[in-house]
């Protein structure tokens, strides 16, 4: 006589595994398609894929995504410079200074920022930054991306800070540390992995955003942002190029979009690898 309870248990496990595979299958399908189609494009383009501007639409040549790649890196850098201090300090305020009434308001506002469609954030930046400046710019794009990044990073850092047991803070106070010293030297040290994760996840999230850039950076594919002065000029970014080129009928531009998709995936992957390498878990 079979042991029905064991059979049922096995069946349940098998069903769970099968459904989990089903859930991740589309992800792997997407990844595989991007790697295969994008990989062949990058191999065909070689170095010039990373450095050249896009070629003439409908021509046999490929060109490259140089300006967009450079633009994405600038956006990542400047967005971090604006967004990280803002998000870190907000999270610290929310967690460490929670007795303030404003802290509660800040928490509600940052978390509800998650619900705002990112294209609206782009339009807001268009109205308050682009129109007064009189032109699109990478700086305007960075501001939009920093706003998009804020709620993600704040909520991750919040959780990391909350995970630090109270006793460590008390230990800090007991040796006469000020509140700020406790936060920056004790709590942040212990929570460093979570904090770094929050920052990098935020950056990775915004690097692949298209909508906030539509009305802020201006898709300038002809010129390279070669220095900080270019931040006040229009620029390009990889996700924007993918979005706009994929919608054209020209196969060389569609190829560029595939190549750019792989490139963007690799950049995000690199960020997560760095995260694993640089920040190890702090054992308590």
């Amino acid at each position: 006589m079979p042991d029905w309870r064991r059979v049922k248990d096995r069946l349940f496990t098998a069903a769970t595994v099968a459904l989990a595979l089903l859930a991740v299958a589309p992800l792997f399908h997407i990844l595989a398609t991007v790697v295969v189609r994008g990989g062949s494009v990058i191999l065909r383009g070689g170095v010039s894929f990373f450095t050249d501007p896009p070629a003439y639409p409908g021509s046999g040549e490929l060109g490259g995504v140089g300006p967009a790649l450079l633009g994405t890196l600038w956006l990542g850098l400047v967005t971090s410079l604006i967004g990280v201090p803002l998000a870190l300090l907000t999270a610290i305020y929310i967690v460490e200074y929670r007795e303030g009434r404003l802290a509660r308001v800040a928490r509600v506002f940052t978390s509800s920022l998650l619900e705002v469609p990112t294209v609206l954030i782009g339009m807001l930046v268009f109205l308050v930054v682009v129109v007064p400046m009189g032109r699109y710019s990478l700086a305007a794009g960075s501001i939009a991306l920093a706003i998009v990044m804020l709620p993600y990073t704040v909520s991750y850092v919040e959780r990391a800070l909350e995970g630090v047991p109270r006793t460590y803070r008390e230990a800090g106070y007991s040796i006469g540390m000020t509140r700020a010293q406790v936060v920056f030297q004790v709590v942040m040290g212990i929570a460093s992995r979570g904090v770094a994760a929050g920052i990098l996840i935020g950056v990775a999230k915004v690097l692949s955003e298209t909508a906030p850039l539509l009305f802020t950076i201006g898709s300038a594919r002809g010129s390279y942002p070669t220095g900080p002065q270019s931040l006040l000029e229009p620029g390009d970014a990889l996700p924007l190029l993918i979005f706009q080129f994929a919608q054209t009928p020209y196969s060389n531009w569609q190829d560029l979009a595939w190549g750019a998709a792989l490139l963007l995936t690799l950049i995000i992957l690199a960020i997560f690898t760095l995260l694993r390498l640089l920040f190890r878990e702090v054992k308590l």
Binding site: D52, G66, L73, G76
Partner: peptide, 24 residues
């Protein structure tokens, strides 16, 4: 560590700017 990260990004950007200007 974050500073190290930013430095890395800045270095790659300098490289790309250089490449971009050389190519075009």
């Amino acid at each position: 560590r974050l500073a190290a990260l930013l430095l890395l990004v800045a270095a790659s950007m300098a490289l790309l700017s250089y490449a971009g200007q050389r190519w075009r």
